[in-house]
Amino acid sequence: MVLTFYVAAVIAVICTALMITRLKAVHALLYLVVSFLALATVFYTLGAPYVAVLEVIVYAGAIMVLFVFVMMMLNIGDRAIQIERAWLDPKAWIGPGILAAILLAELAYILVAPAGSPGIVPEVGPKEVGIALFGPYLLGVELVSMLLLAGIVGAYHLGWNAPGEVESLYAMESSRQRAVVSGDFVRAGVDRPTDTP
């Protein structure tokens, strides 16, 4: 069990380092997913299976899908499809793929290992987590809700566009203009010749 912890921890560090050094956002996302999975494994080996599952469901699942979705939404048009195809070049898959495969092997090892193999620390299940959260740390849960409210209100205010601004943005004919004004995340289609008659 100690070895599995170290392997997963090293993978998490490598993935995070590679993630912040990637030039293309989609490639960074691939490493980020693996990094989340590695973290989940770390949590599992530390005796927190419930947190591990949450990590996979919430981070590697919901939040990552949201990221990918937004990123793909920003790119509409034929040229964007070509760009996306270039992004998902097999070469980009190899790194995250190998690291994920190691994690999978680790998972298989944990599953087939004899049932009585001792963990590093005693296990903490969902029931204990729930009792702690809604017992002594109840105020903490309430405070987190205020934290999220502050985040949502701040993001709403900063992201809000006056109705006029949005209309003028979409009234623009060419995606070149749009890219210049709104600064799209990826300026796909900017140089499409058909746009400039």
Partner: peptide, 12 residues
């Protein structure tokens, strides 16, 4: 938690 509530509100 207090620090983060303060910080996140201050970003906005």
């Amino acid at each position: 938690l207090g620090l983060e509530i303060l910080s996140v509100a201050l970003y906005g």
